[in-house]
């Protein structure tokens, strides 16, 4: 069954090392899909392939039915795939609101790039709701470089959503966050619009179970198991994998 994102037989080799070996992955519209596995399983590599920063030696990646194998990160972002990295990257000298506007531009305002008219109004219209959703209205006019780490993480999510993506790729979003911040992150992710599908790579199984509809387990570059969180939680195969590997 074809979904929104359809990766088939993806293989990535570095010399004699197979980081990914014939991996299939399917993410449907609006689905919350988690990717887990022990260290070295190939999760980040798969995310790199899906995001466009790594080209696989074999395999195809289709998005909304079209082969996107040739597109880099920019092209995929224009199609509606946005990736959020571990380290929040924002435009430091631009204000929070400007950050959101820039992120939205390729997909939301495709033309009239040169018109200076009503820039404040347009920025407000575009960025206001998202910043409010993320609780950043108070810092809308603050240069992003001055924001705290947690605020930057929120801004990055706002930026990722600004482009009205169809798929978000999240790479260990909880890394480096305190317990309180993780709680807030979970709230944010749970509140994401249902129109957006999410592929989440995460080490913390509690987050995975709280946030996802489907889970795929990778091990040594291959798919070990796939199913609902309950199925995965009780699967003896998965337990074995985590016991054996350095989880």
């Amino acid at each position: 069954m074809t979904g929104l994102l359809d990766a088939q037989e993806v293989s990535v080799r570095y010399g004699s090392l197979a980081a990914l070996d014939g991996v299939d992955l399917c993410v449907h519209d609006g689905q919350r899909h988690a990717l887990i596995g022990p260290n070295g399983a190939g999760k980040s590599t798969l995310l790199d392939v899906l995001g466009g920063s790594t080209r696989p030696q074999r395999g195809t990646v289709r998005f909304a039915g079209r082969d996107i194998g040739r597109l880099g990160p920019a092209g995929r972002a224009r199609r509606g795939i946005n990736r959020i990295h571990q380290r929040p990257a924002v435009f430091a000298t631009l204000t929070a609101a400007e950050n959101v506007v820039v992120a939205a531009l390729p997909r939301v305002i495709p033309r009239r790039r040169w018109w200076p008219a009503g820039r404040r109004r347009a920025a407000q219209q575009l960025a206001g709701p998202l910043l409010e959703q993320m609780g950043l209205t108070a810092v809308a006019a603050v240069p992003a470089g001055h924001l705290a780490h947690g605020q930057r993480r929120q801004l990055e999510i706002a930026m990722a959503l600004a482009g009205r993506p169809r798929l978000l790729l999240l790479d260990e979003p909880a890394a480096g966050l305190s317990a309180v911040e993780v709680g807030r992150l979970v709230e944010l992710l749970q509140a994401l619009p249902r129109a957006v599908a999410v592929l989440l790579v995460e080490h913390r199984l509690d987050l995975v179970y709280a946030l996802s509809d489907t889970v795929t387990v990778l091990r040594d570059g291959r798919t070990l198991a796939a199913g609902t969180p309950d199925e995965i939680r009780t699967s003896p195969l998965v337990r074995q994998a985590y016991a054996d590997g350095v989880a």
Partner: peptide, 9 residues
């Protein structure tokens, strides 16, 4: 890199 990641050429 971030700009590219947002889809800008």
């Amino acid at each position: 890199t971030r700009l590219r990641a947002s889809g800008h050429r």
